[in-house]
């Protein structure tokens, strides 16, 4: 009684979701603390930590670029997957449209981030 089984392509999205989840759990709170609390209030860190010059240099460095891209892209893929599955959970069985909107949004965000990082130069 063997049925024909179709291999699921879910691992691609699941791996991006997992990587984004790991990264957001490990780095998310720290980033909120630095960018949202410590720097604006002038606590803990030097006053010019997030100055234009510093941030430009950071985003022009190859490792800095990698970090920014990973943070933006993986967070987006994580959110897209979570939102898409939550829709399903609350009874909105959104089809291909919602899939395109969720994952397409993450894809556009990734491409835009990658383009911007390249455009900003080295």
């Amino acid at each position: 009684m063997k049925r024909t089984l179709k291999r699921s392509n879910a691992p691609i999205f699941w791996a991006l979701f997992g990587a984004g989840g790991m990264l957001s759990a490990l780095l998310g709170p720290m980033l909120v603390l630095i960018t949202g609390i410590a720097v604006p209030l002038g606590l803990l860190l030097p006053a010019d930590t997030m100055s234009y010059a510093n941030m430009l240099a950071f985003s022009q460095n190859v490792i800095g670029k990698g970090f920014i891209l990973a943070i933006i892209a993986l967070f987006l893929w994580h959110a897209a997957h979570r939102i898409f599955h939550s829709l399903h959970d609350i009874g909105i069985h959104a089809g291909i449209g919602a899939k395109l909107l969720c994952y397409g949004g993450a894809m556009l965000g990734t491409l835009f981030a990658a383009y911007s990082l390249l455009a900003i130069g080295f």
């Binding site: 089984l5 179709k6 291999r7 699921s8 879910a10 691992p11 699941w14």
Partner: peptide, 9 residues
């Protein structure tokens, strides 16, 4: 079966 569309994901 695990990796199929009816599978774990």
């Amino acid at each position: 079966l695990v990796a199929s569309e009816e599978g774990v994901f």
